[in-house]
Amino acid sequence: MAKTTLENLRLGVFVIIGTTLIVLAAYLIGNRQNMFGNTFSISAVFNNVNGLQSGNNVRFSGINVGTVENIEMINDSTIRVNMIIEEKMLKHIRRDAIATIGSDGLVGSMLISITPGLGSESLVVPGDELKTQSRLVTQDMLSTLNITNENAALLTADLLKVTQSLAQGKGILGKLLNDTVMATSLEQTISNLEHASKRTNSMMTKLNKEMGRVNFEESAMGILLADTISGNNIKSILSNFETASKEIEEVTKDINSVMKEIKNGKGAVNYLTTDSTFVNNLDTTIRNIEQGAQSFNENMEALKHNFLTRGYFRKLERRQKKEAEKNQN
């Protein structure tokens, strides 16, 4: 009896696991098609649905938010697609959102893609109809491609003309291609260039060697760069400079004070510069001296002509003449 109970228990567990799996799978599949949960329905009108089927996904900004419920033909060029959307999307989709039909990858199934608009309109309410945009169809692409092809054909015809005239040596480019003289001169030019570049190269090598030969260690620059003693010297020189500049500052201060004193009327210099009486005295004195010198000159002239001193002056004149002649020779 106990064995049977155990068997039945195991059987029960097995049955429950199996049933749960079936129910779970059914739920998950249904959940994907929005069969459970709160949904609302909106529609969009297209003139071509490109093979969309009921059950295809509806995406809002790339997120799967619902499925296509059904597709109904209204008239020969308008098709209404009803969609079931999750209710929580009600507060995101606005009236200016645009529905387009696209495909999930190159080979994937078709889907409706809802792109948000500018976001200025009010939110959608269940039953609204969204604006649509027709999808780029292969047919249109092919017709555009056809025009491109025609253009390409014209272009290639022109290109053919150009290449033909090139081959016949017309125009500058044709000459470049066909003229042998020009080719040789071009060759010459290039070889000259090559030569020049070789020479430049050797010159550069020489320069390099010269640069290498310059003894950096014993030059002034080297000492400056490497010698610590001269560095210290420079340091001491700089410190001397500093003290000197300090002293100069003091001197300048002194001079400043002196100048101030001078301005304030102290000392001899000030007396010299500011006292006008003294200047007048000096003026008269100098005038007197001038007059004195003049009378002295007259006296001397008189002395020259005096018989007592005439001989001496003549001798002086002669000696002067001789010296001038000597100098001339």
Binding site: T4, E7, N8, R10, L11, F14, V15
Partner: peptide, 16 residues
């Protein structure tokens, strides 16, 4: 019913 359960156990659980 009992025989059914026994068979279910033998065919279901034993094949699992």
């Amino acid at each position: 019913f009992k025989e059914l359960l026994r068979q279910c156990y033998h065919m279901g659980n034993r094949s699992l």
